[in-house]
């Protein structure tokens, strides 16, 4: 496979995954805030700030009064805002275009439909009443795309590269979401008598990761800070967890680099090392300093991405 095209496929996977997480974050946060148990969690300003924080463009000036319509439009459909879902989907499709000969007709057609859906979404409708419809459609269409990837692509190196992009991005987005909600939980602390450990934000966090039902089944208890973080970071059986994503990345890098030789400079080695580190972590350790954990894991993931670029995509 051409190095340039491999790079494009990797990023196609990343952009698709990113669109999904942003869309779900908008949806869950907005709608759960409507009847949140405490005043701050219900506050529109609080929710909008959380959204900006999550996509990596936080509003640090607390005196600014954010306009709901503007922020939702910006994150969803603004063609001039590079973090918008619209631009993520455009980039995903552009990358797919350049690799059109390699991916299945079915996958391409679905990406194309996804693109046209987002591009043609009526802005006025979206601002007035379309938030739910739009974000649900985006998350469902990405689910279809994942299905098409699994079902219509040969599970060879093309698939492996797309899946690597997808899973690296998923791990990053889950951590961003944890970071954002952790931040929310800190701010919302005590405003309605609930403590940080039992904050309402943990439920929202799980829903943002589509993991609430799974988590309830596993722990059979109301989510707390500890159980939520443990589930989303360390549980290898939760398909959204960081651990699961790292396992997937490891599995797919092995397709690209099947060598059994010990090579400490390879991407496969680095992925294995990062994965092993988290495999033997326990949650109390992480909880002591969650900020450092977040910084470290994001750094490791970018290192993996950069190393991949050097090893496979250099052209």
């Amino acid at each position: 496979m051409l190095a340039r095209v491999a790079n494009n496929l990797f990023w196609m996977g990343r952009y698709i995954e990113r669109s999904e997480h942003i869309a779900r974050y908008l949806n869950v946060n907005y709608f759960s805030s409507l009847d949140a148990p405490n005043e701050l969690s219900q506050s529109r300003q609080f929710v909008l700030r959380s959204m900006l924080f999550m996509i990596g463009d936080p509003e640090n000036d607390s005196s600014v009064n954010l306009n709901e319509g503007e922020i939702l439009y910006k994150i969803g459909l603004d063609p001039d805002y590079s973090f918008s879902i619209l631009n993520n989907v455009k980039a995903a499709r552009e990358n797919a275009n350049s690799a059109r000969d390699l991916i299945s007709t079915e996958l391409y057609e679905s990406i194309n439909k996804f693109y046209h859906f987002v591009c043609n979404y009526n802005v006025e409708t979206y601002k007035k009443s379309g938030l739910y419809d739009f974000t649900v459609n985006v998350t469902e269409m990405t689910a279809i795309l994942r299905g098409k990837m699994r079902g219509t692509l040969l599970h060879d190196e093309i698939y492996a590269i797309i899946m690597m992009g997808l899973n690296i991005e998923r791990a990053m987005q889950i951590i961003r979401i944890i970071n954002a909600k952790y931040n929310d939980a800190l701010e919302a602390q005590g405003s309605y008598g609930d403590t940080f450990g039992n904050s309402f934000e943990w439920t929202t966090l799980l829903k943002c990761a589509e993991s609430y039902d799974m988590m309830r089944r596993f722990y059979k208890k109301t989510p707390t800070s500890i159980s939520t973080l443990e589930f989303l970071i360390l549980n290898p059986n939760c398909p959204r967890s960081v651990m699961n994503s790292l396992n997937q990345v490891y599995k797919h890098i092995k397709v690209l680099d099947p060598s059994k030789k010990y090579n400490k400079e390879s991407t496969a080695f680095l992925v294995g090392k990062v994965r092993a580190e988290y495999e033997y972590k326990f949650i109390r350790e992480i909880e002591q300093d969650i900020q450092t954990f977040i910084e470290n894991i994001l750094k490791s993931l970018s290192e993996i991405s950069e190393k991949m670029e050097k090893e496979f995509f250099n052209y």
Binding site: M1, L2, A3, R4, V5, R100, D101, L102, Y315
Partner: peptide, 16 residues
């Protein structure tokens, strides 16, 4: 891209 795909060969640009 159609021709490359149906022939099962790589579609390249000059820089590749």
């Amino acid at each position: 891209s159609y021709l490359a795909k149906t022939m099962g060969v790589e579609l390249v640009e000059g820089r590749d």
